[in-house]
Design a protein around this nucleic acid. Structure first.
Lengths: 158, 158
DNA sequence: TATTGTTATACTCTATAACTATA
DNA sequence: TATAGTTATAGAGTATAACAATA
């Protein structure tokens, strides 16, 4: 895989840019992705819940119960940080911490019904907001977005 | 022909879904947008800088100098929060705080060359990462993403 | 001895309330 | 009196270091 040197910014030294069209594509997609993500993130079930807290609940909803260490690893924070977040969510009644069956050093962290409800309601609001927006588009535009979503997932996973 | 991968809600209660295709489109786009945004956000010039700090520098780079209040308003945080972030960025040499010309209660906050360099380098890295990913795609896939970016911006602005 | 989780401590980022300076 | 910014204080979220329990 070859590396491309990009010079799109305002500190351009004057050297001509070899691939102007591709650069424009990347910048446009980057900005559009950030703006749409920001709008979607604003749609929440519990307004006082931070993104980090919600991400933990969402991970448990999608991937099932975790040990503390695996949860910290998945969210890319340290174990003490995750321990603190988990404690707050436990106090709020959104998840439970139970001793692991086999290895008693570990704990099993799982969603409660209340925690699952928060995830479901947040997902519902975000999708409802987006759905309403999609309804204002043409069929071709919607097909373009659906196809783009597949490609974006592929790109994000590389 | 593109197949949309269904990612139904695992807590579906059995209630019939009135618009399964549209919801699938929305869910797919929502998840793809969040994942790509997360990957892009990880590409930074200064690794220790928080998203909030970088957002301030980016706002100054895009929209020019601000008073403290306008900057807080734009980033949707309180004036004391923004004041603290601005103080840290000022200490780090990324922006300057100067008295306002007309109204001496106000301060004018502007990027330094170092601050602009951080913004430029971060943008460069994100676009370079994305550009490399785009190179692995077909021309049609790239066209789809370029068209989708336009639509996503339109959707985000509604 | 190594691993898993937790506690101790510290710094950033957020907020609300109170204060200073200026209009 | 109202506005712009700042300071005081507190809670959330992050980290590293040290500790306890278990394998």
């Amino acid at each position: 895989m070859l590396t491309i040197e990009m010079t799109t910014n305002s500190t351009n030294t004057g050297r001509p840019d070899p691939t102007p069209v591709f650069i424009s594509e990347a910048s446009g997609l980057r900005m559009a992705t950030f703006r749409l993500a920001r709008r979607l993130r604003a749609q929440r079930a519990v307004d006082s819940m931070s993104d980090g807290q919600f991400a933990v609940l969402a991970a448990l909803a999608i991937h099932g119960e975790h040990t503390l260490g695996r949860l910290a690893e998945r969210e890319r924070v340290t174990a003490p940080s995750m321990n603190r977040t988990v404690s707050l969510l436990e106090d709020a009644g959104y998840l439970t911490r139970t001793p692991h069956e086999d290895d008693r050093r570990k704990v099993t962290i799982a969603l409660t019904d209340a925690g699952r409800a928060v995830v479901d309601e947040t997902v519902r609001r975000r999708d409802a907001w987006l759905e309403e927006a999609l309804e204002g588009l043409s069929p071709i535009e919607r097909e373009t977005l659906a196809a783009a979503a597949e490609i974006m997932r592929k790109v994000a996973e590389r």
